[in-house]
Write a protein that binds this DNA or RNA. Sequence first.
DNA 1: TATTCGATGCTCAAGCTGACCAAAAAAGCG
DNA 2: CGCTTTTTTGGTCAGCTTGAGCATCGAATA
Lengths: 152, 152
Amino acid sequence: MLKLTKKADYGLMALKFLAEHPERPALSAKDVADAYGIPAQLLAKILQQLTRSGLLRSTAGMNGGYALAREARSISAYEVILAIDGPFFITSCTKGKTGCELTTNCTIKEPLARVNETIAGVLKSISIQDLAEHEPPAARERNARELVALKL
Amino acid sequence: MLKLTKKADYGLMALKFLAEHPERPALSAKDVADAYGIPAQLLAKILQQLTRSGLLRSTAGMNGGYALAREARSISAYEVILAIDGPFFITSCTKGKTGCELTTNCTIKEPLARVNETIAGVLKSISIQDLAEHEPPAARERNARELVALKL
DNA sequence: TATTCGATGCTCAAGCTGACCAAAAAAGCG
DNA sequence: CGCTTTTTTGGTCAGCTTGAGCATCGAATA
């Protein structure tokens, strides 16, 4: 449980792949799919979604494909997951502003909401560039600082 | 996405409820279900699972029911979720020791695995007692320390 | 013995995954 | 200039896994 969907996984892989090949002006969905052995049709749809969200820039036609719309350093894993799977919440009943309509005290939400913020904070502190590099020491320190700053 | 199941939610609610009523020797599944308005049959199954995992102690027969097997302070949210939903992993392909069989470099797993550890650490640092108390300031500090100790 | 409660198995619905197909767009070539 | 190729875009649909919920049987105590 608590795992993110395959779509989000594929999306992160694709962005990582794009970040690793900055020399290419654009990579097609098929290129990425072949590189990782993931279903091409599904990946195409994911990339479209990321394009609509403004994370990617698409070029149709020959030698077209997808490219990062921004710097790899400035795109966080949080944005990617958010664009693909929508807003996530730890608690299953945190929908909109209505909150939990369970009768009396659903007080477990309050501590879990803080867990939710923590996860979001961690994901925000991880950039696509961090994924492209292996074992990024800079990211570690940044994450630790970020977490403390969250005042969890 | 990334939300824990209703079962885990219900389980946490039930344990919280039990922790809030230490004067009662045992509370039936129906009592808890009525208190929160959750399906009784489903909750019963969850409580049975928690009993098998050793988190609860059950008493059959009249005036029977469930009680915490240990102190509320010593039961973490992590244990509850683990008992109900099994081991969770952020990455969808982290199954067993085989790891990711996707062709070449599935290097996004490594940073995400660290996120996974962080989440587990946060959940481990939250006890049932913390859920029962509202706005626990002690838990906050403990969490922050725990996170830094994780060396994320 | 009878009531209360826990344990087990089963069915239904929903979301996710993955694939197929057709259409539009843009670049290259004759 | 028009045709072809490559690639994005959009829609639809079947298969499957998983979770949610229900009904029934079994066990223990008064």
